[in-house]
Structures are given as structure tokens and as C-alpha cells.
Simulated scan of single mutants.
Amino acid sequence: MIRIVLAEDHNIVRNGIRSLLEDQPWIEIVAEAINGHQVMEKIAEGLNPDVILADINMPELDGLSLTEKLKTFMPQIKVLILSMLDHEKYVVKAINAGAAGYLLKSISKEELLFAIQHTAAGNKYICSDLSMKMLARLPVHSSSFDSDQTSSAQLSKREKEVLALIAEGYTNSEISDMLFTSRRTVEGHRQKLIEKTGARNTAALIKYAVKSGIID
């Protein structure tokens, strides 16, 4: 069970996120807050969540400031920043502040669930739209994974198929339909791809696919 706090000052947005998550048997929404101060108060009272979904812009104490405080006092709590801001500089600020990930509010339910699982397990995650945008700005020769892993990673035929579809921008649900398998199976393949290639995010996975010749 992953215990989650929703920190978002807009009721409609917060209620929408809750509706996406509350039907998942492996998620428990343990608290809601409209700013970072409320989150810190709840933690001071003994609340110990695994993941906090925090809006980057909140009154009194915003998502980045909250993340910095938690990095100092409760580093085991993972913070996923939610934002409408799609510029790379905000991603960098969030990661430097200690965030486990950065998500645009336009992401799909499937990607949100994957991001929660991935970061709760101790990994970093940047949503696919931002990863693609950042990838486009990187020089072709740069790498986000270890070169030894690039040459040694042994991928199965199905993992290569999943990787190729990820690189083409398909969601986990779309990939499961195309490969006639379950979404959970696709999520498992995606996690194994990350582990085998040493990639830290979707952009790095795509770069691996290009460098290894899986896609052109």
C-alpha cells in the first residue's frame, strides 16, 4: 500500500486527482492539504506518507519550498511535483530541491499511476512529454545512462517491442492493446527496461533505443 498526501489549493483539481486514485487498491489517500504549511503540520502530528503529490504553486508554502523542507527533515518521503509549467528550468529546480519527480497536470491516469509506483520504489521520474522536450534539446552524443550498460543490456524480444512503442509515444494502455496483453504486464516490462538499461527516465530510454538501433 502506498500512502499519499494530495497537496493542491484548487478544490476541483484536487478532487479530480482523488477520483483518479481512490479506486486503486494499492493506494491510500491519507490526507489532503491546500498548501505546504498544512502538509508540514500533518507530518508534525505524526502523519507519515510515502508520497506527496504537490502542486508547484500553492499559497504560503509552495511545492518547491515544501520539498526542500522535507528533504531536510523527512527525506524518506517522496515528493512528486504537479505543474502546468512545462519549461525545463522548473524541472531542474524541482529535482535540485529534492523532488522525486515532475509531472505535468495534462498527463494520463496511466502515467500518473506509473510515476507514483516508480518514485515510491525510490526512483526518479519526469513525465514523458517533458522528457521528449528535454531530449530534443540534448546533443546526439550525450548520454543519460552508463555506456557499459548500453552495450551489455540484454533485452528480450517483447521488451524491445515495448521499448519501440514507448519511443513512439504510446501510453501503457495503448501498448497493452497493441500487444494484446495487460497494462500491468506492460508496466512490468517498462520497469525492467529501466533497470536493465540504467535509464533514469523516458527520455533516456528513447536515447537507448536510438543508440542500440531498436528505432531509427
Rank of each mutant, 00 (worst) to 15 (best):
M1Q: 04
I2K: 07
V5S: 12
A7S: 09
E8I: 06
N15H: 11
P25V: 10
V30P: 00
N35T: 06
G36L: 07
H37N: 06
A44I: 00
E45A: 12
V51Y: 09
I52P: 04
I52E: 07
L53A: 09
P59F: 06
S65K: 09
K71H: 08
F73A: 13
Q76H: 14
K78P: 01
L80S: 05
L85G: 00
D86P: 04
H87G: 05
K89D: 12
K93Y: 07
G98T: 10
G98I: 04
A100Y: 10
L103G: 02
S106W: 00
I107D: 03
I107L: 02
I107W: 01
E110M: 04
F114Q: 08
F114N: 04
F114H: 10
T119R: 04
A120Q: 11
A120I: 11
N123D: 13
N123K: 14
K124W: 12
I126Y: 04
K133V: 05
L135S: 06
S142A: 14
S144M: 05
F145G: 09
Q149G: 13
S151T: 14
S151N: 15
S152D: 13
K157Q: 12
E159N: 03
I166N: 03
I166Y: 09
A167V: 05
E168I: 00
G169D: 12
Y170N: 08
E174K: 14
D177S: 10
M178L: 11
S182I: 01
E187V: 14
R190N: 11
R190S: 14
K196I: 03
G198H: 03
N201R: 04
N201F: 08
I206D: 13
K207L: 11
K207P: 03
V210K: 14
K211F: 10
G213N: 08
